[in-house]
Amino acid sequence: MPRPELDDLDHTLLGLLQRDSTRTLAALGERVGLSPSAVQRRIERFRETGLVDRTVAVLDARRAGALLAVCLATLDRESRAEHERFRAHVLASSHVQQLYNVTGDWDYVVVLATTGVDEHRAVADAVLKDAPNLRRYSTMLVLDPVRATLDLPTRPAP
């Protein structure tokens, strides 16, 4: 699906929504200079085009008591089918918070979220150690989530 055409108000509205989607339509409209109904139409367009994928509550990892781990994984064989098998296996776990296919020495970055070291060990074994076609993986436990955001740019920085 192609990216929808966005004007300056769309970019501003998307930034506001990414930082706090609980604002009322009236409050958003005041910030961008539109009526609440015009803001609602734009938000509906964002959803209909798939630009806004979903609206969620983002928990603070420390307050939630979560242990985050960044895992790097390399596969043995590079075929599309082998990548799909690996992805399907990893994505079957609810502990996989993020999965990225990347360039460089590693094939994937996997972010795991668990409730502690013991659970992490069990999950890492099940998700990564037992993954099909895995050559090797390395894990880095997150000691301090200094900045964790889901904000994405909608246009190049000036």
Rank of each mutant, 00 (worst) to 15 (best):
Q18V: 03
A69H: 08
G50F: 12
L28C: 03
A26H: 11
R47D: 02
S37Q: 14
V52W: 03
L14R: 05
L16D: 05
E48V: 04
L28W: 00
V58D: 08
R19P: 01
L17R: 09
R42D: 08
S37D: 12
L59R: 14
L51I: 03
H11G: 01
D60I: 03
R45K: 07
A27V: 05
L13M: 06
A57L: 14
T55M: 12
A38W: 04
G50M: 11
S21P: 00
A57N: 10
R31D: 04
T12R: 15
S37V: 14
A69K: 04
L17F: 09
L59T: 07
A66W: 11
T24E: 01
S21I: 02
R62C: 05
T55E: 14
C71S: 15
L14T: 03
R47V: 15
L25N: 12
V32Y: 00
D53R: 15
A66N: 09
L28N: 04
V52Y: 01
G50Y: 12
A66R: 13
S21V: 03
V58R: 09
R41H: 10
L34Y: 01
A66H: 13
E48A: 10
F46E: 10
S35V: 13
T22C: 00
P36D: 07
E48P: 02
A61Y: 12
L59Q: 14
H11D: 09
L34N: 00
D60M: 03
L17D: 07
L13W: 01
R47H: 09
L51H: 08
A69W: 10
F46L: 04
D53H: 14
A66V: 06
R19H: 10
A66Y: 11
G65F: 01
T49C: 06
L67E: 10
A66S: 10
R62I: 08
L68M: 12
S21R: 10
D53E: 15
R63A: 09
R42M: 04
L59F: 12
F46D: 08
G33W: 03
R47Q: 15
L14S: 05
L67N: 08
Q40Y: 09
G15T: 04
G15R: 14
L67A: 06
Q40W: 07
R47F: 02
L16V: 05
R54C: 12
S37H: 11
G65C: 01
V39M: 04
R54P: 09
A38R: 06
Q40K: 11
R62W: 05
S35M: 09
H11N: 07
G50N: 10
G33K: 01
L68R: 15
R54W: 07
L13A: 04
P36F: 02
S35G: 15
R41K: 12
R62Q: 12
A69Q: 05
R63D: 11
D20Y: 06
L28V: 05
S37T: 14
D20H: 10
L17Y: 08
R41L: 07
R42P: 03
A66D: 11
C71V: 15
A38K: 05
G15Y: 07
A57M: 13
C71T: 15
L13I: 02
E30V: 06
A26F: 12
V32P: 00
F46S: 10
A64D: 11
H11L: 12
R54M: 12
R19V: 03
V56M: 11
G15E: 13
P36Y: 04
L67D: 08
V52D: 04
L14C: 02
L25P: 02
R62M: 06
T24A: 03
L59M: 07
F46N: 09
L17N: 10
